[in-house]
């Protein structure tokens, strides 16, 4: 994981001097607490969310603030709590279902894919499922193959679901608040390695639309599309590229479904080159879809094939000596960009 000292360029409104700095985890917690205070139909259910404040301590204090009726410790029953989320959402509540590790989302597949995603459509628009399922992604915690995956591509594939992957505290808070207010099931993937990272977040109320990419850096020679933690890897690469005279534009789509294709295509038409970076497995990953969208929309403007970088197609190994090899890093991004711009 690269350093965050790069200083992400956020939208001007939140870049003012003296801006409050909070962590990614605090931003998530604030978003949930604000929405729970605003709307009594919002509640949180999951393993160790109440008394423990979640294993990553993101939800500490929520139990005291809102009580055990609305911050509910569940048994270790991922499918069951996801089902409870669907049923509660259909009948007037706005549940936030907490799935501790993204790897465990495989246990809730039927409830998300066959139930939550399809209920609105199958009922001809009568029923809605305003539910948030928040979970994690990302390797590099030396947690091995069942606690390290980035499985957002699985859900991005499914019509009826929305999928968000915030990279900054600002994006995390704004996207979480929008997800809670959304009438559809939204899956939010939070990178475990980002929870302690700081960034500017205004005191004032704000939300961010689901489906709007954010240009983290502007540039002219190549468009780098990066998601979640890979935004930081890309930022490090962008700085290195700048030192050798390559100007890269960095765009974070922030949501894979819906995908802000216009912003991606516009940028690629401008720079004539594109590289897509994501921590999911490379094979059939979201990089494939994004690269295809760019290739379709910008083909006649491109000077090189659209390249993509993902996690190595292996189960995430435990040993640090091996794990680090499987995750994209800035040097590899730089080398790939140089080959495209050569």
């Amino acid at each position: 994981m690269s350093t965050l000292e790069n200083g992400i360029r956020c939208s001007p409104a939140i870049h003012a001097p003296g801006e409050r700095q909070i962590t990614f985890g605090q931003a998530i917690r604030e978003a949930i607490a604000e929405e729970m205070a605003r709307d009594e139909s919002v509640f949180v259910i999951g393993e160790d969310v109440a008394a423990a404040g979640s294993v990553f301590k993101v939800l500490v204090g929520l139990l005291d603030e809102f009580g055990p009726e609305r911050v509910i410790d569940s048994p270790i029953s991922e499918a069951g709590i996801a089902g409870i989320g669907v049923g509660a959402a259909i009948t007037g509540m706005r549940p936030i279902v907490d799935i501790m590790f993204g790897d465990f989302t495989t246990l809730v597949m039927d409830q998300l894919v066959n139930q939550a995603a399809k209920t609105h459509y199958m009922s001809g628009g009568k029923l809605t499922v305003p539910m948030v399922l928040r979970t994690t992604l990302g390797a590099s915690r030396r947690s091995a193959a069942q606690h390290s995956q980035s499985l957002h591509a699985l859900f991005s594939h499914i019509p009826g679901l929305k999928v968000a992957l915030p990279a900054t505290p600002y994006d995390a808070k704004g996207l979480m608040k929008s997800a809670i207010r959304d009438e559809n099931p939204v899956v939010i993937f939070e990178d475990k390695m980002l929870y302690q990272e700081q960034g500017p977040v205004p005191e004032e109320e704000y939300t961010l639309p689901l489906g709007q990419a954010d240009v983290k850096r502007t540039g002219d020679d190549i468009t780098i599309v990066a998601t979640s933690s890979m935004v930081y890897v890309a930022l490090e690469a962008v700085d290195k590229l700048a030192s050798i005279g390559i100007s890269a534009e960095l765009i974070d789509p922030r949501t894979t479904t819906p995908l802000d294709a216009d912003t991606l295509v516009r940028s690629a038409r401008k720079t004539s080159r594109a590289l897509v970076l994501d921590e999911g497995y490379r094979q059939y990953g979201v990089t494939g879809e994004i690269a295809s969208v760019i290739a379709d929309g910008a083909f006649y403007y491109l000077d090189a094939p659209v390249k993509r970088i993902g996690a190595m197609n292996v189960p995430v190994p435990f040993s640090p000596a091996m794990e680090d090899l499987t995750i994209p890093n800035a040097d590899y991004v730089v080398e790939t960009v140089k080959s495209l711009c050569g």
Binding site: G83, G87, A88, I90, T91
Partner: peptide
């Protein structure tokens, strides 16, 4: 799960 969620 849905029926139980309705109960919740």
């Amino acid at each position: 799960g849905i029926a139980t969620g309705a109960g919740m």
